[in-house]
Amino acid sequence: MPLKFNYETCSGCKACQLVCALQNFKETNPSKSVLNVYGKFPVPGKYYVDVCNQCGECAKICPVEAINMSGNTYLIDYDTCIGCLACVEVCPTKVMRVNQEESTPYKCTDCKQCAEVCPRDALSFE
């Protein structure tokens, strides 16, 4: 069940980014989140959220097969990951992030906190 975004209701508040970083890093820092909210203003006046849709491009490019499907979610095996960051470059929605301290990639784990918190029901799992 990949994460899905409904732009008709999003009002750009970024509560999803706040809870994502707090859940996964125990930090107040939305820039660390694995989704990205942005608006296109003044025209057309809409919000968009880049999310991980579990497309699997990261898994395909990984040279050491460190990214594998578990249930409905691609997860990174950090024992196997060599930190080449090829997955970061290839991610079509640019939400494969880099842990700057460890130079390793990280991604959405389908923790569902963003969808739970979104006050506009703009995020959901299909």
Partner: peptide, 28 residues
Amino acid sequence: KITDKGCFACPIPCGKYGYAKTKLGNVY
């Protein structure tokens, strides 16, 4: 109205972003 427009972390977006048409011009 085109969209609700909220401030950071706000669940109650009081901003209403829209498109106005007048004889002086049309504006977002």
